[in-house]
Design a protein around this nucleic acid. Structure first.
Lengths: 241, 241
DNA sequence: AATAACACTTACAGTCGTTGTAAGGATTTG
DNA sequence: CAAATCCTTACAACGACTGTAAGTGTTATT
């Protein structure tokens, strides 16, 4: 049965949501520790997270952002206000659906089943900057095409994506490739890195692999100045609420 | 630039939509022949179709259904009424998003960009009964896992899916595999069919490949007594001809 | 500027999965 | 029962991917 996590502070609304979802045939789990909601959700790994925007100690936006940066759990955002601003912001932060809180039972269930169906079978898709990667088959979706990466290149890209923008050590990459760091010529890793680089550039992907001398490698966005700027403005908006 | 097709009868609303979308950076094309809207949309093959529900000669529901059964073009449904009924029906018919018509500019654009982003790079995903197939890489998504089909099995499955529930001739299958029906041992086709069957059953897919004696093959849903009934009638039909 | 350490490139042969062929067995049709 | 058709299995050829090896390019430090 599909597991849905509900993050909502108002008791009445929360009970109502749980009731509707339970009757709809879902297993419902609630999160009330809003401060650590993102971490808890990551551990729960539900099939869907329903987030309220107005929470006491934190904002649903923050939770959404953190959740989306570290997983591909579908997120449905609730808000009691009918403001387009919230919706816009939620979408920018990676929310997958949006719903105004005074909402009929049928509409909620429709949205939920829609979102679940949409993510069905794609639980192993990792989101990169401008591309998707299937961590099982290493099928890569970029620029309206799809390519199957050779296994080693796929493993490397998964390992690099797991590190986000941070560096990944050569040991980690070796273990990702062969399960062990022993008895392996380090040149083999370099060759595989080179091959991945070549396919990435040939696909015109917006990310590059950069060597960190003596330590490892990391992914780097091609045009990374705008991204940080947007991030900052989004933060200031949150403060005003 | 992304192309959006707008199907809306009220002139004022249509102009407003076009204006907003144009300013949003999209190429907009309108459809006013509502009776043949589905066919026209299939030929246009836009990146997104925006459908009104209340149309003079037909219903947006019908268009949506026909469109979704023959393509994977994203559909955004508009309605002027705030009835959950419409939304439910639209979702059931495969609509990907839903929006009430008195709607702010920002919300429309947010929804549009969201839906486009969602379908980005997945334009070559074919929907089967309970599974998805990438027609480029032949990556198959079933039961929360993904598998890469060998090229020949992928080609066969694509060809069979193109036929829907109808039969596909052996010639068509041969051309799908080798581009020509000449000089090919028909046994080779059978071997490949057998292999595809084996992988389909091993993946517990809800569809089966059924041979149509002397003519070709077709896909059949597993749990549908109607299908077997059709099978029998189909056979008798063949004999009587 | 020279050297050492590190990163990159290229070519080649071994390995593994996929494919077509062939032969024989199973099923359906009349 | 016989003929046609479909199915199964095994096997060798082919191609893609991989690790090895050797050599070239780059960076940092003295």
């Amino acid at each position: 049965m599909r597991r849905i996590a509900v993050v909502e502070d108002e008791v009445f609304v929360r009970e109502e949501l749980c009731s509707i979802l339970s009757k709809g045939g879902y297993t419902v789990e609630t999160v009330t520790d809003f401060e650590h909601a993102a971490k808890i959700l990551l551990e729960m790994a539900p099939d869907l997270a329903i987030l309220d925007i107005n929470l006491p100690e934190t904002s649903g936006f923050q939770i959404c952002q953190e959740l989306k940066s570290k997983s591909s759990i579908p997120v449905l955002v609730l808000t009691s206000r009918d403001q387009a601003k919230d919706e816009l912001e939620a979408f920018e932060l990676g929310a997958d659906e949006f719903l105004n809180k005074p909402c009929r039972k049928e509409r909620l269930l429709a949205r939920v089943s829609n979102i679940l169906k949409r993510f069905e079978g794609r639980s192993n898709l990792i989101e990169g900057q401008g591309f998707l990667l299937d961590s099982q088959t290493y099928t890569l979706y970029v620029n309206n095409t799809s390519v199957i990466l050779p296994k080693n290149q796929g493993k490397l890209l998964v390992a690099l994506l797991a590190g986000g923008a941070d560096m990944v050590t050569t040991e980690d990459l070796c273990t990702a490739l062969w399960g062990t760091t022993e008895f392996i010529d380090e040149n083999a890793l370099q060759v595989n890195i080179t091959r991945l680089k070549k396919t990435m550039t040939s696909l015109e992907m917006p990310q590059r692999i950069v060597a960190v001398r003596g330590l490892g490698y990391r992914l780097e966005n091609e045009v990374s100045q705008d991204a940080t700027a947007q991030k900052d403005t989004a933060r200031t908006d949150e403060v005003t609420t």
